Simulated scan of single mutants.
Amino acid sequence: MSFTLFADARLALARDSLAGLSTGDALGAQYFLPAPAPVDLAADALPPAPWEWTDDTEMACSVLAQLADSGGIDRDRLALSFAERCTERRGYGAGAMLILGLVRTGTPWPLAAASAFDGQGSCGNGAAMRVGPLGAYFADSTARAAAQARASAEVTHAHPEGIAGAVAVAVAAAL
């Protein structure tokens, strides 16, 4: 079965995905940041508010903004958006801080992304963590979801495994 989504439906799906991503991200962050006492989710207890989101949500917002503005990923613009929105308080890893710091100071993103981890590039999960809304946006085409996920991942992940993770999550979200 084949179908085509209109722009407003695409954005609605992507925004819904971002709402779920950001909620899960903020809840999960409660268990990685210093907290006064662990909360037992099995007992239906939740950590006290406020729940801050992390770099994963911050970067997903940049991805969604790109899709809303142009309907696709422009790697140069996405790299600049990532760099401009990057703040330490969101919990960016050392590799991301290095890459985005280089982009912020004028290093082209392909060179910055390849510079991480002694030149092999990141094979981490950051690109996969931010790409759910992109997959939802392209729910009518897994091929477009995969291609656009690849483009969004390459900005920070030069390693094929980091890119493959983003493609897998985007295709799953599209489905």
Rank of each mutant, 00 (worst) to 15 (best):
L5Q: 09
F6S: 11
D8E: 15
A9R: 13
R10V: 01
L13I: 00
A14S: 12
A14Y: 06
S17G: 15
L18H: 04
T23E: 08
G24W: 02
A26H: 03
L27C: 02
F32R: 02
L33V: 04
L33H: 02
P34D: 12
A35E: 10
P36R: 12
A37I: 05
P38I: 00
V39M: 01
D40H: 03
L41G: 01
L41K: 03
A42V: 06
P48Y: 02
P50D: 06
W51D: 05
W51A: 06
E52W: 06
D55N: 02
D56Q: 02
T57K: 06
E58S: 10
M59T: 07
A60P: 03
S62C: 15
S62I: 02
S62Y: 00
V63M: 02
V63L: 04
L64K: 04
A68H: 00
D69L: 06
I73L: 03
D74R: 03
R75V: 00
D76C: 00
D76F: 00
L78R: 03
L78F: 08
A79C: 04
A79T: 09
S81V: 00
S81K: 05
S81D: 14
S81C: 06
F82W: 06
A83V: 10
A83M: 03
A83K: 09
E88V: 13
E88H: 10
R90L: 15
Y92A: 03
A94S: 14
M97E: 14
L98Y: 01
I99Q: 01
L100H: 07
G101E: 13
G101V: 07
T105G: 01
T107P: 01
P108N: 09
L111V: 12
A114G: 13
A114F: 13
S115R: 09
A116R: 06
F117E: 11
D118G: 13
G119Y: 14
G121H: 11
S122R: 09
S122M: 07
C123I: 00
A127K: 08
V131P: 11
G132A: 15
P133Q: 12
L134Q: 14
A136D: 05
Y137N: 10
D140G: 07
T142F: 01
A143Y: 00
R144Q: 15
A145C: 13
A145K: 09
A145E: 13
A145I: 13
A147I: 09
A147N: 11
S152V: 13
A153K: 11
A153L: 08
E154R: 14
V155M: 06
H157D: 09
H157V: 08
A158Q: 08
P160F: 07
E161A: 12
G162K: 07
G162V: 09
I163W: 08
G165Y: 11
G165W: 12
A166M: 07
A168N: 08
A168Q: 14
A170D: 12
V171R: 15
A172K: 14
A173C: 15
A174H: 12
A174E: 12
